[in-house]
Structure formats: C-alpha cells, structure tokens
Simulated scan of single mutants.
Amino acid sequence: MKRIKNIGDIPSFLSNQRYDDFYKELSKHKLKKEIGKRHSLYSRVQHVLNNTYIIEDDYTRDKKKSKRLNKKNDKKKVITVEITRSITVNGVKKILQPSPPKTKNEIIQEERDSIVRNILSFTTHQWQDTPDGKKLNYQSSDFTIFPGFNFDDSPIITPIMNHKNYHNFKSINPFFDVFPRNLDDYIKMPNIYINLDFSDDAIIEEFKNQLVELRETQNQKPVYSKTKSYIAKLINFRILQVMDLLIWQAITNHHVLYDTLALFLYPQGQFSGKQLKETIIPLSKNLLNSKSNESGFFYYIVNKKR
C-alpha cells in the first residue's frame, strides 16, 4: 500500500473545488440519489477486493464444458461467432488483427480503471447538442438508468406483508426483492398482532410500553436518534467527497494520512485528522455499505415527509 503524505499527491479530480462546483445545492433528495450511486460502485469495489469478480477464464471454461455436454447429448449445437475489427483509411478497408485473450489480472485492472473513471464522472460536467445548434450543460450525475431506484433498506419495522401489497410491489417495481423472498417466509416470521378495534393512540401507547420492556430486556439503547441536524452534519463532513476518496484509496491501494487528508478536505481547520479517523471515516464507510444501520437511518431521514 502506498502512503500519501503530501496534498499534491492526491488526484485533482477529488479536490474541493470540483465538489463545491458540482454540489452547490445539495438537497436531501439529491444526497439520497448520490449515495445510492456510491452504493452501487462500492459493491463493484468489494468484488475486486474479495476476488469474487467474474472473469473471462471462467466463462471460457464453462463454454468448453457446455460444448462437451452438448456433443455428448447431441441435443444442442454450440454456435461460435467470430467478431472482426476493421479500419477504413482513404476508402480502403483493412482487417485488424484480433486482440489477444486477456489475462485475469488484465481484466481486474480494467475494472479498477473503470471504477476510477466512475469516481471522476461524479463531478464531470457534460455537454449535449440540441436541434437548434446550442449546447446544453448538464451534470452527468443527474442521470440514472433506473429513475427512482435505490438501495433503500430503511424500514425499521418489517412491513406487514400480505398477498395484495406483496404482488403490488412486484408489479410496480420489477427489481423489488425482499428478504425473506416470498410471502410464505413472511408468515413464518415473528409477527406483531394488532387489534384494530382499538384507537391508534391506544395501539401506539401499548407498543411504546412493550418497546420500553424490550429495551430493558435486551439492554440496548437507540444509537440512531438525532434527526434534525443529521443531513447538515453529512454535508459539513463533505460526505460524498470522503466516500469517493475511500473508494479511490481502496481500488488503487493508496492510503492518505489522516492529518494530510484533513488539511486537503478542511483547509480552514473545521475538522482534524483525529476527527476524520474516529468519526467521519467510520461514518462514511458505514454509509458505503447499503445494508448497514447507518444507511438504513439515512434513508429513514431523507424519506421523512417533514
């Protein structure tokens, strides 16, 4: 691992100026969208670091195995498609030599480079031609493949699931996938039985009483309780920039010293290297994990109507 002691050795695309320019107005809904994108990118990082990335060698091996089985069973035929590359210069077409097969390390390195380019794209302005010849300036980060789709694991209480709303979820969002994965599994789970003949106030009061008893039994106090200043705290921490720095460090095998990173991120001395190490970076790492309690609490906050 390469340790970075000087600010000048940190890539310029991670600078404050780029992030300040790109995220001038960062609402909680915009922040939700941006953190969702980093969840997706961080999952790719984990595949690379944990050596669970699917490489071409595995595909080739499976294809050969499939060919043997097909030949043995004589039921299917394997069709091989050859792709040729060509270049035309002055009207003359020239066939290029096929690219040599890539090694596992080459494929992994390409994925690493792609992840770095993704980090760069988060703060890169793009241009688009219009029919009248003018160019519109837009931010690439404003676009997403699946509008409204995110890794939202925020429900603090597992929703009461029945046949009607379960299938409604499935029809509205084809990507909807819950754990447990089917209605029968939900029925087997511990349930909260509610007598709806009573008023909402009576039910809520009873639930609060049960909650007090449960916390005493489990000896567990709430960790996530402060909601009013939570989003402002994330923005003051420059949380998106810190998350991108963590992804960049992980995928490029670098480590910026905490005091150096504090000076890079907070030149006015808002936070120290010790605060980065003990508070801001642990928070950022938890937010990168879409399944963490921190991410769940974040989605709970941004989804609140007030």
Rank of each mutant, 00 (worst) to 15 (best):
L246R: 07
I7Y: 07
F207Y: 13
S43G: 06
V116N: 09
N118T: 03
I281L: 08
D21I: 04
A232P: 06
K274Y: 04
Y266A: 13
Q210V: 00
Y266H: 15
L69W: 10
Y230E: 12
S15W: 00
K24C: 07
K102S: 13
I157G: 10
E56G: 13
P100G: 01
K2A: 06
K277G: 04
F149R: 13
Y224S: 05
D58E: 04
K135S: 12
D259A: 15
K277T: 03
S292C: 04
F13A: 06
T52S: 14
L69P: 04
S121A: 15
K164G: 08
I115D: 04
E111W: 00
F13Q: 08
V242Q: 05
S114M: 10
N195P: 01
G273R: 11
I108D: 10
Y258T: 01
S284V: 00
R306V: 07
N73C: 06
F146K: 13
G36K: 00
I87S: 12
F22A: 09
N162V: 01
L288R: 02
K75T: 11
S121C: 06
R85P: 00
Q275T: 06
G133K: 02
Y19C: 12
L287I: 02
V178M: 09
L257Y: 08
I231F: 07
L265K: 07
H29R: 10
K188A: 14
G269R: 02
L96K: 03
K226S: 11
I4E: 04
K64D: 10
G36W: 00
K102W: 00
G8V: 01
V78A: 09
Y266W: 05
D74C: 11
L257M: 10
S154K: 05
L120V: 13
I194A: 12
I55S: 09
I251L: 02
P100R: 07
K134P: 06
K2M: 01
K226T: 09
H254T: 14
I280M: 03
V212G: 07
Y53E: 14
K32I: 00
F22E: 13
P174C: 02
F22Y: 15
L263G: 13
L265E: 10
Y224D: 10
L257W: 01
K2T: 09
D62S: 13
K30E: 14
V48N: 07
Q17W: 07
S15K: 03
P159G: 08
Q268A: 12
L120C: 08
T130R: 15
P174H: 09
L211N: 06
L287C: 06
D200T: 13
K65I: 02
Y300E: 10
Q126M: 14
F237K: 09
V178L: 04
D113C: 00
F13G: 02
D152W: 01
K72Q: 05
S15M: 06
I79Q: 10
L14C: 15
S99W: 02
I145C: 05
K226V: 12
P98F: 00
A202L: 11
S99C: 07
K37L: 00
S15E: 09
L234G: 11
R181I: 07
E294M: 08
G91R: 05
D185R: 09
